[in-house]
Design a protein around this nucleic acid. Structure first.
Lengths: 193, 193, 193, 193
DNA sequence: CTATAAACGAGACGGTACGTCGCGTCTTGTC
DNA sequence: GACAAGACGCGACGTACCGTCTCGTTTATAG
């Protein structure tokens, strides 16, 4: 029987790492869509088939390559002061996405996801959902303690905060920097306490 | 001297319209990046060169094709009630971008702009700036009248509102519909009066 | 009524000369098939239509451009010594076709004529026939005088002599130079007296 | 290092044959320069790149496609009668080049070689040289035996005979048929014994 | 001595083919 | 059986020219 799924147990970890590293470095250097799968394979010293065997698309490689970097997004601290904690968290995200390496790759990934539902779903499940679930929990806790008005949907608050960041990341109206994001948070928080 | 600019006076208006119409219909049908410039030319009954002569990229065609549809975004009503007016305006934008035709084309355009600075700049100048300038003016007027707190930067308010819309448009966490956007506006406005 | 023939009386002689000169110089510089009609028009400072109005193809322009240069081919001298006269004539042809300008253009013209029956016919009528008719006459006269065997078809003799020249011109086995052609003539003539 | 040569061991023989067959049939049907590499690829059921990978030009494909057909040209018989043998050989060549398939392709090839030195060289090495070397040897042998005058350069004799054939093939003054070529041979031979 | 129609320069147009790039699949050894 | 290497069928790229078609602008007779 041909076309059966490959056996993950026999997978070459060295090749996997080389592919992810090549993807990150090439995209940082050239920009997401000037990088081809052929180029990633060549720089990684890998056959094309090895990429196609384990990932469905360039976007999926980028998503996995970003994985570890973006894991930080999920850490919502709890110091007792919800506003300060969200501010800290959002600043971290902003700093990360504003950096050349991660930011450029992530922009390209989001662009690719616009026309690739599978990639969009994977992105939501692996990046967005963990972060929003954690944020949602942190906010709900704050509402229970009476730090925030209880009649605001925590999900909406999270979306609003991330909206401010992604708007700057993807629209390029102004640079994506922690200082920039501060004013937006002020407004968003002004009516919530 | 070679490669001089073509003469716009000699331009064939019929071809121009056919190209923009073909671009819109093809992108709606197939999705932005399954549409090639060749396909647009073929459907428009036009030579490829006629597209390359007047536009630098597929994204530029899409931008011009969207032009008229998105002009509405600039209309900020002034009924005296700033919250109601912004709500009306944002609902209009949401409805427009949530529609199949315009929304799909616009998503693709924004995706393409991620890796095309010239296209990004054109998008900002032709779509974003006119709308934010108008919104900025409307909000500043409301602050003068005392409808809104005067210490909030109007630009930040605008960005926050649009951020909520673009977040849904590009992240696909939830459908982009007027009802959806309402809750976000509630929160954004809750502290501004 | 459209599409009527243009009026030769109103033709711009200056443009005609500029086109022929541009064709010759461009073909000499770049080689026949790296020259486009657009390039000829540009160098001649002429609209493309002016070329298409008066010539059916690039080959036809080349043929007319060669016209005067190749007129010499028709001059068969008559000194009384047929062998010496043919030798003189063939040397002249060889020298002409071996020169960079005329030779290169003529090679290209013959190449183009391989797939263009109209051009081939025009070439035969304007270049080949006048020359062979003159040669035929000169040989027939020699046969009448008893200089040459009378049982050889004059046309065949002419074709054989020109064959030796064209073989070198088009096959490039050896350079086309008067010295080269001499030995061939020796053999061709050896049995004719 | 990019652009390295492809590995001939990996070459797909089936595709190679399909390409050569498609080239021959298309050129016979439409004429050499109405056939594009795209059309050859399409008829052969092959990607364009597969042609460009193994041949530098359409002419090179035609040359290889002709290869086997023209191999016969190299067979110079040796019956003891040099004139009869050359006559036989030249008739064979004439018949071959006068046929629709081979003749049309070969005319186009020679035309293309006029402006393509690499193709011209390949043609000389693969077609002309083997044939003239063989003919040269056959004639030299005849001279040794005293069948032909020893003071005539065998190469010149060969060129003269082939000149008569190529003149008719490429100039189209008269059809290229065995009967036609006979008279030319008579003259060429008349003084050689 | 106009005026008017043709030829002209310029170049936009609908097309065809170019030669290249990258896709995702398939094949051929190697480890 | 996963792997490096890369040939393959395919589709699109952006460019060069094709031959046709307007555009004003000369220009050279015919009224």
């Amino acid at each position: 029987m041909s076309h059966s799924k490959p056996d993950p147990a026999r997978r070459n970890e060295h090749s996997r790492r080389a592919i992810l590293a090549a993807a990150i470095s090439l995209i940082s250097e050239l920009g997401y869509d000037r990088v081809s799968i052929e180029a990633i394979a060549k720089r990684a010293g890998v056959g094309k088939q090895t990429i196609y065997r384990w990932w469905p698309s360039k976007g999926a490689v980028a998503l996995e390559a970003l994985g570890e970097s973006l894991a930080t997004v999920t850490d919502f601290p709890d110091s007792g002061d919800i506003v300060e904690d969200l501010r800290t968290q959002m600043k971290g995200v902003t700093q990360l996405l504003g950096s050349t390496d991660v930011g450029r790759v992530y922009q390209g990934l989001l662009a690719a996801a616009q026309c690739d539902p599978a990639l969009s779903r994977a992105h939501l499940e692996q990046i967005i959902e963990p972060a929003t679930v954690a944020g949602h929990a942190r906010i709900a806790r704050a509402q229970d303690r009476g730090e925030l008005r209880a009649d605001a949907d925590p999900q909406e608050i999270i979306d609003l905060l991330y909206g401010a960041i992604y708007y700057r990341l993807l629209l390029h109206t102004r640079p994506l920097a922690p200082e920039q994001i501060d004013a937006a948070l002020d407004i968003a928080f002004s009516g919530l306490r």
